[in-house]
Simulated assay, not measured.
Amino acid sequence: MAAAALLPEGRRGEIDGLADSKLLTPASRERVYEEVVARALAYAVVVIPADEVDARGLHVCNLAAMRRALASLTTRPEYVLTDGFPVDGLDVPGLAVWKGDRVAACVAAASVLAKVTRDRLMVELDGRYPGYGFAEHKGYITAEHTAALREHGPCAEHRFSYVNVAAVSGRDGRPPRSRRPVVADGHEPMERSGRSGGTVGVALGEQPRPPAPVGEDVVMEGGVR
């Protein structure tokens, strides 16, 4: 999963409490999410299904999600800042910024969009597949998640290429035949629109070992908007 966010310049683009999504409490993320949606000139969130991750690998899909999020924007950006990973195949200039969600407001906004969307999706999956605790662990490998996998086996939304899922699936990391589509390998081009301008931030929706959340007083300091 990845998101892209293009914030307006000036005071309208200044969002109170905006920060790296991993440093915000769930309540803070939800509040900032609504502000980003209300103020952004353009934004997009893209979800890569589990079968594509199994077929292509996580890193390839992360880059594809970033490209697709950019291609989904209704406003064409002049410049792209990506969180951590350089992304090729774009026809606009860009820069990969290490821990970009901590130094660039547009990247932080994208990280909040992606993280909140992912958490909401996990809550939805918890209702569809009770017993796995998706609403609590949000898909991360925890003792409770591992125990649920051992008890129930993987569900249709698990990634069979992951070590913890493969260990209990009995399929050596291979998804069921119905979950193995042929996926084209290529770059998703940036769609052109009639409007352009600004710097867009792009961030992923999942990161390993997120730090403990902090309170409402965490704000974005400086950075590029």
Results as ranks from 00 to 15, higher is better:
residue 25 T to L: 00
residue 26 P to E: 00
residue 26 P to D: 00
residue 26 P to M: 00
residue 26 P to Y: 01
residue 26 P to G: 00
residue 26 P to R: 00
residue 27 A to W: 05
residue 27 A to L: 06
residue 27 A to D: 10
residue 27 A to E: 11
residue 28 S to V: 07
residue 28 S to C: 15
residue 28 S to T: 13
residue 28 S to D: 15
residue 29 R to N: 13
residue 29 R to S: 05
residue 29 R to A: 04
residue 29 R to C: 04
residue 29 R to P: 01
residue 29 R to D: 04
residue 30 E to K: 10
residue 30 E to N: 05
residue 30 E to S: 10
residue 30 E to H: 03
residue 30 E to Q: 14
residue 31 R to C: 12
residue 31 R to I: 08
residue 32 V to Y: 04
residue 32 V to L: 10
residue 32 V to Q: 06
residue 33 Y to E: 03
residue 33 Y to L: 05
residue 33 Y to P: 02
residue 34 E to S: 12
residue 34 E to Y: 01
residue 34 E to M: 03
residue 34 E to P: 05
residue 34 E to L: 05
residue 35 E to T: 13
residue 35 E to R: 15
residue 35 E to I: 08
residue 35 E to F: 13
residue 36 V to C: 03
residue 36 V to I: 02
residue 36 V to N: 01
residue 37 V to W: 05
residue 37 V to K: 11
residue 37 V to Y: 04
residue 37 V to R: 11
residue 37 V to C: 13
residue 37 V to N: 07
residue 37 V to M: 08
residue 38 A to R: 14
residue 38 A to N: 08
residue 38 A to D: 14
residue 38 A to E: 13
residue 38 A to P: 01
residue 39 R to P: 02
residue 39 R to I: 09
residue 39 R to Q: 13
residue 39 R to T: 12
residue 40 A to I: 04
residue 40 A to S: 13
residue 41 L to P: 01
residue 41 L to Y: 04
residue 41 L to S: 02
residue 41 L to G: 07
residue 41 L to I: 10
residue 41 L to R: 12
residue 41 L to V: 12
residue 41 L to M: 06
residue 41 L to N: 09
residue 42 A to I: 07
residue 42 A to V: 02
residue 42 A to W: 02
residue 42 A to R: 12
residue 43 Y to Q: 04
residue 43 Y to G: 01
residue 43 Y to D: 00
residue 43 Y to R: 05
residue 43 Y to L: 02
residue 44 A to C: 09
residue 44 A to V: 09
residue 45 V to A: 07
residue 45 V to M: 05
residue 45 V to I: 06
residue 45 V to C: 11
residue 45 V to R: 04
residue 46 V to D: 09
residue 46 V to N: 11
residue 46 V to M: 13
residue 46 V to E: 15
residue 46 V to L: 11
residue 46 V to K: 09
residue 47 V to P: 08
residue 47 V to T: 15
residue 47 V to E: 15
residue 47 V to W: 08
residue 47 V to N: 13
residue 47 V to I: 12
residue 47 V to C: 15
residue 48 I to E: 10
residue 48 I to H: 09
residue 48 I to S: 06
residue 49 P to W: 03
residue 49 P to T: 08
residue 49 P to C: 12
residue 49 P to S: 07
residue 49 P to H: 09
residue 49 P to E: 12
residue 49 P to Y: 05
residue 50 A to C: 02
residue 50 A to G: 07
residue 50 A to V: 04
residue 50 A to E: 05
residue 50 A to F: 10
residue 50 A to W: 09
residue 50 A to Y: 11
residue 51 D to C: 14
residue 51 D to K: 14
residue 51 D to N: 11
residue 51 D to W: 05
residue 52 E to D: 04
residue 52 E to H: 09
residue 52 E to L: 07
residue 52 E to V: 12
residue 52 E to W: 03
residue 52 E to Y: 12
residue 53 V to E: 07
residue 53 V to N: 03
residue 53 V to C: 00
residue 53 V to K: 09
residue 53 V to T: 04
residue 53 V to H: 03
residue 53 V to L: 08
residue 53 V to M: 05
residue 53 V to Q: 01
residue 54 D to H: 03
residue 54 D to E: 03
residue 54 D to K: 05
residue 54 D to Q: 02
residue 54 D to G: 06
residue 54 D to P: 01
residue 54 D to Y: 01
residue 55 A to Q: 08
residue 55 A to G: 09
residue 55 A to T: 07
residue 55 A to F: 00
